[in-house]
Nucleic acid binder design. Sequence first.
DNA 1: CAATGTGTTCAGTCAAGACTGAAATGTGTG
DNA 2: CACACATTTCAGTCTTGACTGAACACATTG
Lengths: 165, 165
Amino acid sequence: MNLDNKRLRRFIENTADLMEEQGFPRMAGRVIGALMICTSPHLSHEELAEQLQASKGSISMTTQLLMRLSIVERISLPGHRRHYYRLREQLWNDLLSTRSEHILQHLSLVDDGLALLKTEPIEAKMRLIELQVFSDFILESLPEMAKRWEQRRPELMKKRLAQLS
Amino acid sequence: MNLDNKRLRRFIENTADLMEEQGFPRMAGRVIGALMICTSPHLSHEELAEQLQASKGSISMTTQLLMRLSIVERISLPGHRRHYYRLREQLWNDLLSTRSEHILQHLSLVDDGLALLKTEPIEAKMRLIELQVFSDFILESLPEMAKRWEQRRPELMKKRLAQLS
DNA sequence: CAATGTGTTCAGTCAAGACTGAAATGTGTG
DNA sequence: CACACATTTCAGTCTTGACTGAACACATTG
């Protein structure tokens, strides 16, 4: 194993660490890492199994999970039997909208809590109201942020690309 | 167990579900739930153990974790031997700033990746650059968001408090 | 400085779930 | 339709880590 290969593995394991913190299985993090760092536009099922030293069964489980979460997508190439996988485009942009669903969950939980405290004095409710108001704020900020992202993207992109030379 | 007690438990378990999704131990979610819904300003070690039907050891472990993460704080009341716990004030506000640290981690990982792809054509790098630029955007947006939150909070607060009547 | 009330630590138990590997199923090709 | 190649499924293994409970440590009070 040469030096770059070693760094490659470390990159993939670091990605796995990061995703594990977010509650994903390590293998899912590895697949994401491999698809981020690969030089070709996609990797086959077999290539993933080989590069990550994992069983084909495990890769199958993991890609199913990641497809269900709209993180990777499967591609079939004409004339090839194999399945190929790549990271979904627009993956990062979508983060802004999927956050909204989580926050709506939060809010519904907080509503339940406030219902429970209905007859209690206002002081007891304040903790929940603070959270409710903060969630309101995030919820109303997200669409605006998405709009600003579209505006800002080209400029930031240009700046980063200039740094590569 | 009366009806409200049942709803109380459900609230706490729902909180645990939500926190578990974020990678916390269930017990940590339960403690947070109990501290959110309690009518007194704080709960003692023993009250937590009793209400959550957990061992004192488990509560000790969990409160340590939550204090390390600056989620709860411990209070000692003069004339009382017991320890009391409550949710940190400003907890939600802090979310905006702690996010930044996570994103800096992301960015450093992406930099590693780009270093690995140094000699590769631009197409191979695009996936990582997209992520880098998106992280840049979030990073520059967060302080601005925190500022807007301070401005917006009083108004949203007033609106929510009006709904309680 | 005991005695009593609290909290922490840690070894052991238990459950959840990630991963493997082989059998079953699917899919495209001659 | 049969064959070969690919993927999925699933039962079993193994690891991880949450939780318990009892022994230990600490602190407050008389």
